[in-house]
Design a binder for these strands. Sequence first.
DNA 1: TAGCCGTGGTG
DNA 2: TCACCAAGGCT
Length: 356
Amino acid sequence: MAFSSTDRAALRKRLLSWYRRHRRDLPWRREPDLYRVLLSEFMLQQTRVEQALPYFERFLKAFPDLRALAAAPAQEVLKLWEGLGYYRRARHLHETAKRLAPLKQVGVAELAECPGIGPYTHAAISSIVFGAALPVVDGNVNRVLARLLALAEPPESAKGRRAIRAAAAELLAPRAPGDFNQALMELGATVCLPRGPQCLLCPVQAWCRAKERGTPEAWPLKRPKPARPHKQIAAAIVRRRDGKILIAQRLSGALLGDLWEFPGGKREPGESLEAACAREVREELGVEVDVGAKVFEIEHGYSHFTITLHVFECAYRKGKPRALGCQAFAWIREDELSRYPFPKANHPIVAKLSGR
DNA sequence: TAGCCGTGGTG
DNA sequence: TCACCAAGGCT
């Protein structure tokens, strides 16, 4: 045990009391039913509250309950998710809704079977909605507990993960697991910040071994991360003589899965951007184009690499499009572009072409 | 275990 | 400018 039973009891009491006074007023906390909490937890995976908020409101308006979400077309769900990132979450959320909506009763066991619900999300929903005594471990909990314990290993390491899990389970308030879990996360999000922790405002500072050592921001210990490579990407605005543009839908499992894009891809060593552009259109859709002027150069970063996106105006020459390196394609007018979900890096192109 | 999967804010 | 990192899950 990392703490004595009297310390555990006092720490819980302080934390819960602090949470009940200081918690943020968030829409999914006003009526914490299964649907709202489920929706919020999917959106909050690796995503800040402020970024998820407008999406939560939009979803709740478009799909007021689990049944409405389950009945929606997949494309509509993805379009509403556009811009939020980690697009697999949209598909998993939709599949989870379709799985749960027909059930008379949903409980801890049913949640565990759903796609997109891992250990964190399962414990979060179960504790908040059903009052199940399951500890959550997320980025906030990792940081808060690593500091409380002055943990000697990075939380991502095997030893660190075990220690954090054990501490979270040990501290969990058995009679208010939902509030306790949210309190720990709220503390991490608003007080026990990655940089510049507000220790003087912290309700559990008396038990914090990192604060005791004098340099709380030195925890959690960091693991070196690999550098992000940079790639040169060519993309084509392929126009037919009637003015329509050729777009493609990306493969489901891939990066930006199920989203639509302007066809293109990575430049090979020694290849010109124009040649890469023509080659990628040929490989992806079986279409020959004449590459014209470059009209965009866009810098963009993803989670594990960065790109420069070079966009060329291209004239359609020949070949009937086929879905070779994509799952679907479409010839569309410029004013139809905004109906399709595009990755963020393509938004400047969509905005310009659709005249906004 | 470690790499893949987005986007936006921050210092 | 750039690294960091955020209510993680899947393979």
